[in-house]
């Protein structure tokens, strides 16, 4: 349809300008991939792909680098965050859509969205000043004296409670993604047709049964997409965890040990790497992180689009 109007020269120019502007996104993605790849090529040549991904070495003196420790830290911190955030976020979504009286719905919704707008550095700083002492003095010793004695799980809570560790980082990360996950879940829940819910209630279903058997099945694609999207967010979060992780390049079984994530490694070491191979390895980490989160976000988008299409039909 618009093609009809392209006769006008200004119109042609305008369409080209807008087209170029929209292509900028594509240019950034390709540009980031290309630049990160070229910058990291010395490290890629030296360490290869599999060896870099699996090596736990991060040894600037001997110039031997591997991503395994950073990947491990990223994975564990993200896992803890999702473990806490998913049930809470879904609970919040259920509360807003099904339980809360109407006059509360919008204030709570707004409050949750404000929580999502707080910059991550505030979470990080608050974590260091407020949460770390609480973790070190109360929560971690309590965990050690209870869960610490349970066989198998016990090893997760070994070590000294000092608050600067994977567990604290995971908790801060979870606080950060809860509002995000909750608001997507709420939107997904809201897509459930009112009429279907009404029918279920008419059949005598309890509220929980409606949620469990009608709302969740209806919205599971959207909720799942939201969770994966939060996963993607959590993977790439820097400032919220940089304060409390202790940048320790080691794989430890205990959650009470310091660790490193890809993002924290970059934030701490990027401007300071003195040898070329060191810097190249850091670019390599950035490349891995970019690819990893890009794929995760693409999967999330896939599910969200599918969910949308299901309802637009």
């Amino acid at each position: 349809m618009p093609v009809l109007f392209k006769k006008n020269p200004i119109d042609v120019a305008f369409s080209i300008i807008t087209g170029l502007a929209s292509l900028s996104v594509l240019v950034f993605i390709i540009g980031i991939l290309y630049v990160l790849f070229t910058e990291s090529s010395p490290a890629i040549e030296k360490f290869g792909v599999m060896k870099f991904l699996t090596s736990t070495d991060w040894d600037p003196v001997r110039e031997s680098f591997g991503a395994a420790t950073s990947l491990y830290g990223t994975a564990v911190a993200t896992a803890i965050a999702l473990f806490i955030a998913i049930p809470v976020a879904i609970g919040i979504a259920v509360f807003i859509t099904e339980i809360s009286p109407d006059f509360l719905k919008s204030p709570i919704g707004i409050a949750i969205e404000l929580l999502a707008a707080i910059p991550s550095i505030i979470y990080g700083m608050w974590g260091l000043f407020v949460l770390v002492p609480i973790m070190a003095d109360y929560i971690e010793p309590a965990l050690q004296s209870t869960l610490g004695n349970v066989p198998l799980i016990g090893i997760l809570f070994e070590g000294t409670p000092m608050g600067i560790d994977l567990l604290t980082a995971g908790i801060i990360l979870s606080i950060m993604i809860i509002p995000f996950t909750a608001s997507i879940s709420r939107d997904a829940f809201n897509l459930t047709p009112e009429i279907v819910k009404e029918s279920a209630y008419a059949l005598g279903a309890t509220k929980w049964e409606v949620v469990k058997n009608v709302v969740i099945p209806y919205s599971k694609l959207g909720v799942f997409g939201g969770i994966v999207l939060s996963l993607g967010r959590a993977l790439g979060e820097t400032m919220a965890v940089a304060f409390v992780l202790g940048n320790n390049h080691q794989i430890t079984t205990s959650l009470l040990d310091a660790a490193a994530t890809i993002t924290v490694t970059l934030a701490n070491e990027f401007t300071e790497a003195d040898s070329d191979i060191y810097l190249a390895s850091l670019f390599y980490l950035a490349l891995i992180l970019f690819v990893l989160s890009f794929i995760t976000l693409a999967i999330a988008k896939f599910f969200l689009l599918k969910a949308e299409r299901k309802f637009s039909r």
């Binding site: 996104v25 594509l26 980031i32 990160l36 820097t238 990027f270 989160s293």
Partner: peptide
């Protein structure tokens, strides 16, 4: 792609 770019780790953009 834009939707994905919205959530891409900002630190990577810094390195770029």
């Amino acid at each position: 792609l834009s939707d994905i770019m919205v959530s891409v780790p900002s630190i990577v953009i810094g390195t770029f």
